[in-house]
């Protein structure tokens, strides 16, 4: 049975080789981050032990924005250059980004209750992050809304690109508006203003979450490519079936 792979086989070979290394790196980084974060770093003089929530809340929020930026870039490349892999990368990224946005909101709420006294406030930072979650969900829904995958990919890409304006709004919301949420302490002018004992676990978890994203994205891209092959084969078998009758 001869079957032509319409997919970039070279990418699949690269993904299979790289994936175990990325997986190992992720486990290493996150274990180290958890160790330093939970066992080997001080409590905050004001917030006490709740500062430990920072080691999952902040990396999740960073990844929520990082994934959306990757999603928007992939959609741009797909729309402009019709690159088939870019569409798959975007489709693979969306659920991961949505997961991280959800985690940022939930861990933030769990931190806000003891420290602010409220599970949720309509604060500029929190509200724009909620909008980001809806953008992710909208992208995924629109992507699957059509029978023809190409139309789904095209319309959801446009939504993703339009929605990108929300990313700088989230980033600078704490500076533009008078927000209850604190301003940036790491990615800001003049460099991080956190003590090394807390910065170390934070960066370990940040990089660990990034390699986790690459790991799961590779798996999901391979899934999408395999799915395309199945669809192509089914179409060909249906076509040959009709011609034999």
């Amino acid at each position: 049975m001869f079957h032509r792979f319409a997919n970039p086989t070279r990418f699949l070979r690269f993904a299979a080789v790289v994936q175990p290394w990325i997986a190992g790196l992720t486990v290493l980084l996150i274990s180290a981050g958890l160790y330093f974060g939970l066992f080997d770093s001080p409590a905050d003089y004001q917030q006490g032990a709740t500062v430990r929530i920072m080691y999952v809340h902040v990396p999740s929020a960073w990844m929520a924005l990082f994934c959306y930026t990757s999603l928007a870039i992939a959609c741009g490349v797909a729309l402009i250059w019709k690159h088939p892999l870019a569409d798959l990368a975007a489709k693979a990224t969306a659920p991961i980004g949505a997961g991280f946005t959800f985690l940022a909101l939930v861990t933030g709420s769990l931190w806000g209750k003891p420290m602010w006294g409220a599970w949720w406030v309509w604060d500029a930072r929190l509200t724009s992050m909620l909008v980001l979650l809806f953008l992710y969900l909208g992208y995924m829904a629109l992507n699957n809304a059509f029978d023809d995958p190409a139309r789904g990919a095209k319309s959801s890409s446009i939504l993703a690109l339009v929605g990108f304006v929300n990313v700088p709004i989230i980033k600078f919301s704490v500076n533009w508006w008078n927000t209850l949420h604190q301003p940036a302490s790491v990615v800001k002018m003049g460099g991080p203003s956190i003590h090394a004992s807390m910065l170390t676990p934070l960066l370990l978890m940040g990089v660990g979450f990034t390699t986790y994203y690459l790991w799961v994205m590779l798996i999901r891209i391979r899934y999408e490519v395999t799915n395309n092959k199945i669809r192509a084969l089914q179409r060909r078998q249906a076509a040959t079936g009709e011609s034999q009758i």
């Binding site: 006490g48 929530i53 985690l103 939930v106 861990t107 769990l110 003891p114 986790y212 799961v216």
Partner: peptide, 22 residues
């Protein structure tokens, strides 16, 4: 420090979502 009800659920939900997605 008395904040167990907020810290452990935060780590738990992160573990569930990330491992679940993987």
């Amino acid at each position: 420090g008395g904040y167990a009800h907020f810290i452990w659920p935060s780590y738990a939900v992160v573990a569930v979502v990330m491992l679940g997605l993987l």
